[in-house]
Design a protein around this nucleic acid. Sequence first.
RNA 1: GCGCCCGUAGCUCAGCUGGAUAGAGCGCUGCCCUCCGAAGGCAGAGGUCGGGGGUUCGAAUCCCUCCGGGCGCGCCA
Length: 557
Amino acid sequence: MLPDDALAAFAAAIADLVAERYPDAPAPTVAFEAPRRPEFGDFATNVAFSLAKAARRSPNDVAASLVADLREKAPNVAALFAAIDPVAGFINVRLAPIVWRTQIAAILRDGEAFGRKAPRGERISLEFGSANPTGPLVVVQGRTLSIGGTLANALRYCGYDVFVEWIINDHGNQMDTLGRSLYARYAQRFDPSHAFPEDGYPGEYLLPLAQRLAERDGEKWLHEPESAWLPVFAKFGRDTLVAEQQVTAQRFGVRYDLWQSERELHETGNVLADIAHLRELGHTYELEGALFFRASEFGDDKDRVIIRGDGRPTYYGADIAYHYEKLKRADRVIDILGPDHHGYINRLKGLAEALGYPGRLDVLIAQQITLMRGNEQVSMSKRAGNIITLDDILDEVGVDAARFFFVMLATDSPLTFDLKLAVEASSENPVYYVQYGHARIASVLKNADPADVRAARSGADLDALGEPSELALARRLGELPRVVQGVADHLAPHRLAKYARDVASDFHQFYTECKILTDDPAQRRARLALCLAAKSVLAQVLGLIGVSAPESMERDG
RNA sequence: GCGCCCGUAGCUCAGCUGGAUAGAGCGCUGCCCUCCGAAGGCAGAGGUCGGGGGUUCGAAUCCCUCCGGGCGCGCCA
């Protein structure tokens, strides 16, 4: 019997006993949690606390009598546990080793599919990364890509039908600014004194684009009016930069189902149509020639303009269209935005409510990042033009370290990213700690007799498992499905990074305390089986985070 | 001024929607390779969970208030 089933049986038995002994008390929920301290057992439940009042007895008395009853009236359930102790009102339980062996067998049997849920028919639209197509991706997008990519993987693991998308903000003034900036770089190739626009994008990344245009079209545009070259340069810049962003996102290991162009939403008439829908619902009004959305009635600070006095929709107007489209086609919509979008949480949630989909939209804000190199802060000033791109970071520390560091902290928490630390192959680096665990197992398996490994893989003889560090590791491995579900429920992907370190830690402890390749064949195979299970879970977790699980580590640091 | 987020060990951070003596990594002090990878393990020191009230059997967690830090408050995108 699997641990979860054993706990469920325990909970059911307790519920029966409560109904019998305290018929007047409301039916309690018997929940288990892993206690902080290992000596309190594998799991603990606090049912006795909630019963104490109705029973007019101390929680400890209630717990003690429930345990006594359980032993007497449900001996088959009690037999699944090595210990059931009422302590200070809690009921602490320790599962019998046989149950943990069943857990290991299940992990070996299911492999990659371990804990993975069947499709539950719920569609989730997940948007993140979305940047202006006016430059390369930078650190901020690195964090949202890491968080979003991991969350998408976790949600899929839990059986959700996830649709990952990106909105390209390719509409509005900034496209003209991009076009003029690019044109200036182009013109400067022929006349270095050509003025650069004051509000232009000064980054060097436009130089190669200007070169390509000069090679393609020669001097042709120097003699044309702005009305002729602006659309050409804006489109070329936009298309090229978006393509580069897509390459970077792919390099980072994030796959998108849709790159939605904002301009397209305007051109197809969706924006105006969806704004009209909002108007029909009565959530708008006209003032001084502009159309306002009654956002303040839905939790926002104030009402927002969605169509300007001159008839053009605002950015927020386009957002209405985009989110309405998403809400119509998905059961749930999640946006992951950058740190300068706090004001958007209420605005977007209010929008969802106004459109008739209250509570169907979640907004996550990925907090700010400070880049360090050792003790020195790395400047990321966009105005100065000396931007550090996401590609620069990937060149310096690699995809694995970047993905892990960016997702390691709670999304809400500001992040300091030390480039020097991330690239250091040292014990300070959590990425290596986890990967080393995987590589260490691979190394043991390489040293083992292949026949033993084959036998271990079948999960047939696990009876030799019983040491505390073996059972602790088994328990940890069994947590995977619960952990991923927690990530999905709380939209908290950083828990996976924490779990990866916990698994590695429990493995390293086991490795230190138990020799795997012993002379006793039964023990050897049992421990190899545990290694195989640990390797599988580690690979799975690292995969969810988007980090590779290496068979060996290079020893150069 | 209003709104959102944050404040936990010297540093960086967890704390699983209210549970037991508040945890981990780094740094510091010591120990552990005749053995499968020491990029590892063990032990120790280090805390008024920003302050103060409240809710209850029980609060780092929920509510109020104050202090401190970050971000946002365009008919820009």
